[in-house]
Every structure is written in C-alpha cells, then in structure tokens.
Design a protein around this nucleic acid. Structure first.
Lengths: 112, 112
DNA sequence: CAACAATGCACTATACATGACACATATAGG
DNA sequence: CCTATATGTGTCATGTATAGTGCATTGTTG
C-alpha cells in the first residue's frame, strides 16, 4: 500500500520540467490554440493541461508528451525519422549489455 | 468525476517514450546500477522503475525525469547551465506573447 | 553446475491524481 | 470601454496508479 507519497525532485528535474512546460505554453499561444482545444485533442481535461503548463511533476508523462506533440514542441530535438533510428540503436545496445546489474562489491578496506 | 480514462497516444509519443525508456535502461545497465538502487535513489518503488523502463505512458513525469537524471540520461540534450538559459528565454517570450488565445474566426465562405 | 542475486509479474489496499463543474478574474478584440 | 471568452482556481467523487509483498524466472558469477 502506498505510504504517504511525498516525492522530492532534484533542481535539474525541476528545471527540465519548467522548461518543457514553458515551451508548451509558448507554442500553444504562438499557434493561437485554446487551452480547451488542446486539451480536447489530447484527450485530457483543461485543468490537466493547466497543470502541465505549470510544470506539475505528477502529470502522466504520456499526456504531457502528447500535448507537446500537438502544440509542436519536439522532444529530444529530433525529427520523427531519426527518432526511430535512435530507438533501434538503443535496442541494439541493450541486446549487447548484460541483462541485469550486479551490486558493486563494496571493497572497503579500512583495516590495515 | 473521472470517466473511465482510456487514453490513446500518437505514434510519435509512443516512439519518444520508448526511446526515453530504452535510454534509461541502457544507461542504468552501463553504470552497473541495480534497479532497487536506482528506485531507492529516486524515491520510487522497483515496480515503478520497471514500468518506466517499459515506456508505460501513465508514469509520473517527475519520477521519470528524476530517474533519467540519476542514471545520467540528459533530457533536451542540454547541460544544466544552458537549461536555465533556455528557461529564461522562454519566460521572456511568454511575457511578450498574448496571455490567452482567441479561437480562430472560422470564416467559412461557402455561399458565393 | 551450483548458488545467489536481479528482475518480472501478479495481487492487494490505499493514497491520490483526475475529470467534471462552478465561479471569479483577466484579457483580447471590436 | 464593453463584452464574449479564455484562463485560474477550488471542490468533490471516483477511478486508478502506486508501494509493498511474495513468488517464479532469468541471469550472473564462482
């Protein structure tokens, strides 16, 4: 059962979230899109979009990315084509990498 | 009240999610980090991390970004310094942009 | 191969995000 | 200015994601 969840976020994470939120809002306004319109197209409520544009860390990542796409903010600064390519590269790398990680043997030699 | 929420995601969104998930998993394994370790550091459960690495669109964006930072995946391909700069730029742009968007006057002239 | 560790997955109870609605405020555009 | 409308914010009911757990499976290492 979920204990009272009160997450903390690093400054970097908050900055990224804020930047993304700002980009989305700016793009939406530049395109003269109504919050209601964008929300409808993304299949979310207007309140949800409002939280996304306010960099609320608890929003679903899928909804956020969908909104970004709708208003025209490109994630990963990559065009769709390259995206699939990168995915393939990562996939390949994953097949090479070990499938599980071992805990580093904490070799603490404090007796000498 | 929330109607039965069954969102649909565009192909692009799914690709981005998959790529991000793959990058995270690859980075974690390359760094020889245990799922449990990363989860602990991010303040989430191991199951949650598992879903993040499986590109589940319903994860909290904050948790996902935090994990990305921990394993060393840089969002927006930008180093922390530039990030704040970009944020400032966006912020400025936002002050110039209109604060609300008007619906486009659908001037449909089909009577001529 | 043996033994151990990491991961995947299913299940449950609960905290919480979400959608809907309503109201107040701000603001665009005439 | 005036007015329609876009947005911000709060509340509430409810669906659902989450943490925790245990177990099976897979993977690693000696």
């Amino acid at each position: 059962m979920p204990k009272s969840v009160t997450r903390t976020y690093s400054r970097y994470t908050e900055e990224v979230l804020t930047l993304l939120a700002g980009l989305i809002r700016a793009a939406r306004l530049e395109n003269k899109m109504t919050a209601q319109d964008v929300a409808d197209r993304a299949g979310i409520s207007r309140g949800m979009l409002s939280r996304i544009e306010k960099a609320d860390p608890k929003c679903e990542i899928g909804a956020t990315f969908e909104v970004a796409r709708i208003v025209g903010v490109s994630l990963f600064e990559a065009e769709p084509g390259r995206l699939a390519m990168h995915s393939k590269q990562v996939e390949q790398k994953l097949t090479l990498l070990p499938k599980s990680a071992r805990k580093e043997k904490k070799v603490v030699m404090d007796d000498f």
